[in-house]
Design a binder for these strands. Structure first.
Length: 199
DNA sequence: GCGACAG
DNA sequence: ATCTTGTCGC
């Protein structure tokens, strides 16, 4: 299950999407979206306060019970050791982990160039996550556990969700869905604030 | 004090 | 996150 939030440029409209993906085929099983308005500013380290509320709303619009939450951001690899993925995991009781696109925790060694290579993301003596290369020669993503899952498992799943793109398929689909709704909602697609579609 | 800083 | 056209590459 992938989650993502998109923001409108001129408006304070936001759209959260929760997409259920079949682990075997990576086919989209269900998409739930929710429209809302910005209720909290972006503050590095406090992303969960901005995105968790509306993401939880999107999750409630789902018919499926997700096995695991793949979040766009950090889990434990966070200044307070409690990023968005941790919040969502604890709040839902579901296993969760985060896959961030950029580094927040300073030091890490660049993984080998090939897909599947990784290096530890550590601070002091503790390992907070991993920089994982999901495609040959592309920038690594930063994986960290959120709730009820191990780092090995989180990284395995990340690679399984990235057979072709740098970003996990679940997250990618949530990104596509959320921005499509925002684009389609510009004064014409007078749809309600919540929607869901299964397959 | 200064810079960096998930999305 | 979002603003943006073409362009280089598989």
């Amino acid at each position: 299950m992938g989650l993502d939030v998109s923001y409108a440029k001129a408006t304070n409209q936001v759209c959260a999407a929760a997409v259920v993906i079949e682990l075997e085929s990576l086919a989209v099983a269900e998409v739930a979206t929710v429209l809302g308005e910005v209720a909290f500013p972006y503050v590095p380290g406090l992303l969960a306060f901005r995105e968790a509320p509306i993401l939880l709303e999107a999750l409630q619009g789902l018919a499926h019970e997700p096995e695991v939450l793949v979040c766009d951001g950090y889990g434990i690899a966070h200044p307070r050791r409690f990023g968005l993925a941790c919040h969502l995991g604890v709040l839902t009781g579901l296993p969760s982990f985060g896959v961030a696109k950029t580094s927040f925790i300073a030091d890490f060694v660049n993984p080998d160039r090939r897909r599947g290579a990784w290096s530890p993301l550590k601070e002091g003596g503790e390992t907070l996550g991993r920089a994982v290369r999901t495609q040959d020669g592309v920038k690594p993503v930063f994986v960290s556990v959120g709730h009820r899952i191990g780092l090995d498992q989180a990284c395995d799943m990340t690679l399984r969700l990235c057979p072709r793109y740098r970003i996990p398929e679940a997250t990618r689909q949530a990104d596509v869905a959320s921005r499509r709704v925002l684009r389609t909602t510009g004064r014409s697609g007078g749809a309600p604030s919540g929607a869901s579609e299964s397959r």
